[in-house]
Design a protein around this nucleic acid. Structure first.
Length: 579
RNA sequence: GGUCCCGUGGUGAAGUUGGAGUUCACGCCGGCCUGUCAAGCCGGAGGUCGCGGGUUCGAGUCCCGUCGGGACCGCCA
């Protein structure tokens, strides 16, 4: 399969069973070891591995030269075997070397040593970086995951439909990239944040089960787990409830994990409320404990002013961390807690005799101290952290500290997938309109048991939105959508959007629902994140061939760049001088 | 928009109290070398200490600004 007119085998392929065969390899010179005029060892590399070639030293080959080597596979002398190489049992002898191309010395070594090189340099010469084993492994893993997902979705009857990249701008949600129209100067397309609206219309259109490995674009600030462009497994299905969606997406993810050579484990389910109460986040990392314990009852009658009157008091036990957390680090944790919105952070260290050491210990009664110790299962050497505040603040602060203190690196531990369900329908209040803001998006179906509270107590309404979370990373989200125009209008009214305004903003999307929209729901799964976790990478740039930096530029192509005045003139665009 | 960290030959680092562009490893160039495998030995070349300004007799080092990169907050319905 890998042989061509220029090679018979690849560089990681040959074994003792090939001894005696004449072979031709082609690849890059990985290293050259000279031993006088007549003898040199040349390691030839391609993406499959490295093979040692024994050559006459008069041939001038240097690292990264592209060469073709023809010779005979031979067993290595018994004292020259290399068990660190897959091909270490053999070498190529009687070599004829053809130099296909010379090469300048690369700006950084094509080896794991380049892991230490500043990332900008790797990105500037990404074509060299990708020669390295790590990048080859990551990109091929990514391809295997994509392939497995396609197979899984198609085996469930999903049809791949491509949706447009030039779409109308809809101002909700993430900031869009916009594209000027040449034929209609002053008008613009947007690049899709996701194929959301199109995939729902495909349900109206009777496609029944749609999927796409879709590129999504969002003009928001970049992070370790966020790029302007990213890939989603985008899916939508008709005549389903949440469980149906979870089953097929779960099957695709399990297939992806297996294709990546990983054990996906079991995918559990947890309500949003439980996730917040136990882990303080809506994307819990279930690989470690340190769960939030509710201490409100413990301090119900406390005299300690910082606790008295707080609606929620919770704590975590950073087991065994009392010693390593000196005053500076504890002050750092307190600062962190305050930045998130807490009024403060109470810490207590459990001494060898079980007593509590803390600036505030003297304000806590003996009964409170023993109840606290029991609630947090505290043992000597443990560090206890307590927050007393509004429920949401208390949970969020402790959830953040829990992650800061306990979260293992991405490559560690088992995979712990969890569906987080029953998200609140509305989150917070819009500053301008004073109306509730949608937690997911305004087309999300409310939980059937809560529909009666939509107008009377909207903040208590749960939605049929769900996230898939893996080891503390949000992999994606989805929902059962509203398919009845009446309910949609009701939701818009709660959001403060009139029928006229809804018509103006979403008309092209809403009107089709009058023509017979089936009940439907779907999901979008972030592939870059999924692959990064399977690859053991903390940063999705490591699983993207040509990513952007945090400021959105590409050190290799220098994008973005200014364009010719003529191009701007054609589009009717004038660029303002910098402020 | 904000907080924090980084920027020194091609690469990675060290550079103390402000005292000569100094040091180390790798790479590169030349020489030696017939069993290495990140080969070894000898020699050599290679610098806008990101950039600009300031303090100072003197700045890689201190101060201000700026550019680039990274982590995070905001943002990501």
């Amino acid at each position: 399969m890998s042989s061509t007119s220029m090679r018979t085998h690849q560089c990681g392929e040959l074994r003792p069973e090939h001894v005696g065969q004449q072979v031709t390899l082609a690849g890059w010179v990985a290293s050259r070891r000279e031993h006088g005029e007549k003898l040199a060892f040349v390691d030839l590399r391609d993406h499959t591995g490295v093979t040692q070639c024994v050559v006459d030293n008069v041939v001038d080959v240097r690292p990264e030269y592209v060469v073709q080597v023809t010779g005979v596979v031979a067993s290595r002398p018994a004292d020259s075997l290399n068990d660190r190489l897959a091909t270490g049992g053999i070498e190529i002898q009687d070599c004829v070397v053809e130099i296909l191309n010379v090469a300048e010395p690369p700006p950084f070594p094509v080896s794991e040593r380049a892991d230490q090189v500043v990332e900008t340099t790797r990105l500037q010469h990404r074509y060299i970086d990708i020669r390295r084993e790590r990048m080859q492994r990551n990109l091929r893993l990514r391809a295997a995951v994509n392939s497995a997902i396609r197979t899984a979705m198609e085996s469930e009857g999903f049809v791949e439909v491509e949706t447009p990249m030039l779409v109308p701008s809809t101002p909700e949600g993430a900031r869009e990239f916009i594209v000027p129209s040449r034929q209609q100067p002053g008008s613009f397309y947007a690049l899709p944040q996701s194929p959301q609206l199109f995939k729902q219309l495909l349900m109206v259109a009777g496609i029944d089960r749609y999927y796409q490995l879709a590129r999504c674009l969002r003009d928001e600030d970049l992070r370790a787990d966020r790029q302007y462009e990213f890939m989603q497994l985008d899916a939508e299905m008709s005549f389903v409830d949440q469980q149906d969606v979870h089953r097929v997406i779960g099957a695709a993810v399990v297939a992806a994990a297996k294709a990546a050579g990983q054990d996906p484990g079991e995918i559990v389910r947890m309500t949003w409320l439980e996730a917040m109460n136990r882990f303080g986040v809506d994307k819990p990392d279930l690989r470690f404990g340190m769960e939030l314990a509710d201490l409100t009852a413990v301090f119900a009658a406390t005299e300690f002013k910082a606790f008295a009157g707080a609606s929620t008091i919770k704590g975590i036990n950073a087991a065994g961390m009392a010693e390593e957390m000196g005053r500076n680090k504890l002050d750092g944790l307190t600062d962190r807690a305050k930045k998130i919105g807490a009024k403060g952070l109470v810490w207590l260290k459990v001494a060898a005799d079980g007593s509590l050491e803390s600036p505030v210990a003297k304000f806590l009664s003996e009964a409170e101290q023993s109840a606290l110790t029991a609630s947090l299962d505290a043992k000597p050497g443990d560090l206890l952290l307590i927050v007393a505040d509004e429920w949401a603040t208390t949970c969020e602060v402790l959830g953040t500290l829990r992650n800061d203190l306990g979260r293992p690196p991405v490559h560690e531990g088992p995979y712990r997938f969890v569906w987080v369900i029953d998200f609140p329908m509305f989150v917070g209040v819009d500053e301008v309109s004073g109306r509730p803001r949608p937690g997911h998006h305004p087309f999300t179906q409310p939980h059937p048991d809560d529909v009666h509270m939509l107008e009377t107590d909207p903040m208590k309404v749960r939605s049929q939105a769900y996230d898939l979370v893996l080891n503390g990373w949000e992999l994606g989200s989805g929902s059962i959508r509203i398919h009845q125009p009446e309910l949609q209008s009701r939701i818009f009214r709660i959001l403060g959007i009139s029928d006229e305004e809804a018509q103006k903003r979403f008309g092209f999307f809403l009107n089709p629902f009058k023509f017979g929209a089936p009940p439907h729901g779907g999901f979008g799964l972030g592939l870059d994140r999924l692959v990064a976790i399977f690859a053991g990478e903390e940063n999705i740039r490591e699983v993207i061939a040509f990513p952007k930096t945090q400021s959105g530029s590409d050190p290799m192509t220098n994008a973005p760049t200014p364009v010719a005045q003529k191009q701007l003139d054609d589009l009717g665009i004038r660029v303002l001088p910098p402020k």
